[in-house]
Amino acid sequence: KRPMNAFMVWAQAARRKLADQYPHLHNAELSKTLGKLWRLLSESEKRPFVEEAERLRVQHKKDHPDYK
């Protein structure tokens, strides 16, 4: 399984919050909304998630050196 990218790291927590706020939204609508919200974030707001995704990528490479 591939490591999560920055969006997926962020969306993991954001999806729970959004689903709690809008329990009537279908998963497809949640995903579209999350995409729009992510694009509205500034680079500095995204930075911690980009850094975490990079950490996960490096760890994955270490754990699975033959993964392509």
Rank of each mutant, 00 (worst) to 15 (best):
R2A: 03
A14W: 07
N27P: 15
R39D: 05
A53E: 12
K17M: 03
Q59V: 11
T33L: 12
K46A: 03
L25C: 00
K68P: 09
A11K: 00
V50S: 08
R55A: 12
M4C: 00
N5Q: 01
V58W: 03
Q59E: 13
V58P: 09
L18N: 00
R16E: 08
Q21S: 07
N5R: 07
K17S: 06
R15D: 00
L30G: 02
E45Q: 12
D63G: 06
L41Y: 15
L30T: 01
S31E: 14
L34N: 00
R55W: 03
V58N: 13
G35C: 05
R16L: 06
L18K: 01
P48M: 04
P48A: 06
T33W: 15
W38Q: 00
R2L: 01
Y67M: 13
S31Q: 13
K1D: 04
K1C: 00
T33P: 02
A28S: 11
R47P: 07
E54K: 05
W38H: 01
S31W: 12
S31T: 05
Y67I: 09
H64R: 11
R47G: 08
N5K: 14
A53M: 03
K36Q: 03
F7H: 00
V50W: 03
A11V: 08
T33K: 15
N5E: 10
R16N: 05
F49K: 13
W10R: 01
D20C: 04
H60N: 13
K68Y: 10
S42H: 10
Q12H: 01
S31N: 11
R16H: 06
F7A: 04
R47N: 04
R16F: 00
E45S: 13
V9S: 12
Q59I: 05
S31A: 02
Q12P: 02
E51Y: 04
L56W: 01
M4R: 10
R57G: 11
H26P: 13
T33A: 12
P48K: 05
S42G: 11
L34A: 01
T33E: 14
D20W: 04
R39C: 03
W38K: 12
T33I: 12
H26M: 03
H60K: 09
R2E: 03
K17D: 07
P65L: 07
W38Y: 01
N27T: 09
L56F: 05
N27L: 15
V50D: 05
L18C: 02
H64N: 15
A28E: 13
Y22W: 15
S44K: 03
K1I: 02
R47E: 09
A11W: 07
S42V: 06
P3H: 05
L18H: 02
D66S: 08
S42T: 10
L40K: 15
A13K: 15
M8D: 10
H60I: 10
H24D: 08
Y67P: 14
E51D: 08
G35H: 05
D63W: 04
L40M: 14
P65I: 04
F7I: 14
V50I: 09
E43M: 13
R39V: 02
E51H: 04
F49H: 13
L25K: 03
Q12Y: 01
H24I: 02
D66L: 04
K62I: 05
Q12M: 05
Y67C: 11
D20V: 11
A13L: 05
W38R: 05
R2W: 03
L40A: 15
D63N: 08
Q59P: 10
R15K: 11
E54W: 01
K1T: 03
E43D: 14
E45R: 11
V50P: 10
F49D: 15
S31P: 09
D63Y: 02
V58F: 02
A53D: 08
P3K: 14
L56I: 10
A11R: 00
V50Y: 07
Q21M: 08
P48G: 07
D63I: 01
L56P: 11
M4G: 11
P48N: 10
A19Y: 05
E54V: 03
R55Q: 13
D20S: 09
A14N: 13
E54Q: 07
Q59G: 10
E45M: 15
F7P: 00
A53I: 06
L40W: 15
K1F: 01
K61A: 09
E43C: 15
Y22I: 14
Y67F: 13
F7L: 14
K68C: 14
A11F: 03
F7S: 00
S31F: 03
E29W: 15
K68T: 02
F7M: 12
L25I: 09
S42D: 04
E29G: 13
A13H: 04
W38T: 06
L41K: 12
L41G: 08
D66A: 03
E29T: 13
F49R: 14
